[in-house]
């Protein structure tokens, strides 16, 4: 730390925090979107299933 009492630098920590937040939020978002589409496809298949065999 510099003698003026002000923190100098530390950009690597700022970058780390922002990159981590970006990675976590986008990974979770993609996982939710992907799981949603999987469930939709499965539900549609089930709706079509009994109708096709009727």
């Amino acid at each position: 730390m510099s003698t003026s009492g002000v923190l100098s630098g530390g950009w690597e920590f700022v970058t780390a925090a922002y990159v981590l937040s970006l990675v976590v939020l986008s990974t979770y978002s993609l996982s939710v979107v992907w799981r949603y589409r999987v469930e939709l496809r499965r539900a549609e298949r089930e709706l079509r299933g009994p109708e096709e065999s009727a």
């Binding site: 923190l7 925090a17 922002y18 939020l25 978002s29």
Partner: peptide, 30 residues
């Protein structure tokens, strides 16, 4: 996502340094 991108950009590059924390305080914006 758009708001977050805009806010982060401003927080990282537009906002001035803080009096005691220097630039590390920008972590606070997330």
């Amino acid at each position: 996502a758009v708001l977050l991108a805009v806010g982060s950009y401003i927080g990282l590059f537009v906002a001035p340094s803080e009096s005691f924390m220097g630039d590390v305080y920008r972590i606070m914006y997330v």
